[in-house]
Design a protein around this nucleic acid. Structure first.
Length: 302
DNA sequence: CCATAATCCTGTACGC
DNA sequence: TGCGTACAGGATTATG
């Protein structure tokens, strides 16, 4: 699933291949994929056509392209299966093609999304509350202190230099919830999904159900460091998986699979101690952990 | 305000 | 073989 490292790989690919190009036409093949665009498919096409793509910016799992002239951006969220594919020349058909942006050199930017949890929308920009840049970005105006309105409530991510780690740690300890729930809360810290939460917790040797209000500052920092480190490692490998014509998320499985310690490895030995990895249902999904390295707390918060 | 459950969607894996 | 069901899950919305 696209989490921070995958989205950053896509953002980097967009920065390399579509910046400075102009949208010449828009085809919405599935209205549901633009459901977050207030004006509907026709309005989306109208707002995009003729606009130049000036910058590619990301915060957590949200990414956006700044548009020229007005203070608007094309926001993309990949959901669970979204891909943004840069095509040169006449683009091929694809069974899950949802939106196609024609570009001024004859190529296209295709939004392909099998499970349709992702979306595209053109939205206004609003100031960042802390006055820092909107996120990690490249291109003209990428460092402006603005974010798309629907991203205003999304916290900075662990790879953002403007993240205030001390305040984040305090915010974790002020919550009354479980540690993994907090890691997955995009309004606290963004970019972490189910896979990297499990992997980060394994690295930190902390159980997902540890109550946040009973964690030490050092423990919270360990959890955040674990997530940051595993995402950095995944990002380093993600950079190798696309070529010049193809900006690819590479999906849920693939390039980083071999490096996963617990996710999808129920019953297999923990890489650290050999104890069989366990799995339990959690928040309509699942959690995987090593019962020896990550002992369950006496009073778990779920 | 805070925490949590329900909801959206589609392809794959599985049991019977 | 074919059918039904569970599952994968991020963000928003609704509810307590």
């Amino acid at each position: 699933m696209p989490e921070l490292p995958e989205v950053e790989t896509v953002r980097d690919g967009l920065a390399r291949h579509v910046l400075g190009r102009t949208v010449t036409g828009v085809e919405v093949r599935r209205d549901y994929s633009v459901r977050r665009h207030a004006g509907g498919p026709l309005d989306l096409a109208g707002r995009l056509t003729g606009r130049r793509l000036d910058a590619a910016v990301r915060r957590g799992k949200f990414l956006w392209l700044l548009l020229d002239e007005r203070d608007e951006a094309l926001v993309a969220h990949l959901g669970m299966s979204g891909q943004l594919l840069v095509r040169d020349g006449e683009p091929p058909e694809h069974p899950h093609l949802r939106v196609r942006l024609r570009l001024d050199d004859g190529g296209a930017l295709d939004f392909v999304d099998q499970r349709t949890f992702g979306h595209l929308a053109v939205v206004e920009l609003v100031p960042t509350p802390d006055g820092g840049p909107g996120g990690t970005g490249t291109g003209t105006g990428a460092d402006r202190p603005v974010v798309p309105a629907p991203v205003a409530h999304i916290a900075r991510d662990l790879l953002d230099p403007h993240l205030d780690r001390g305040r984040l740690v305090d915010a974790f300890r002020a919550r009354r919830t479980g540690l993994k729930r907090a890691l997955l809360d995009q309004t606290l810290v963004s970019g972490i999904g189910n896979i990297y939460a499990d992997e980060g917790l394994w690295r930190a040797r902390l159980h997902y159900a540890r109550p946040t209000d009973r964690l030490s500052r050092a423990e919270v920092n360990r959890a955040l460091d674990g997530c940051a480190e595993v995402m950095t490692a995944a990002l380093a490998q993600g950079g190798t998986s696309f070529d010049a014509l193809y900006v690819d998320v590479n999906g849920a499985s693939g390039y980083f699979d071999r490096s996963l310690a617990v996710y999808g490895r129920e019953g297999e030995p923990c890489p650290r101690c050999g104890t069989p990895i366990r799995r339990a249902s959690f928040m309509n999904r699942s959690s995987a952990w090593c019962p020896r390295c990550q002992p369950q707390p006496r009073r778990p918060h779920r």
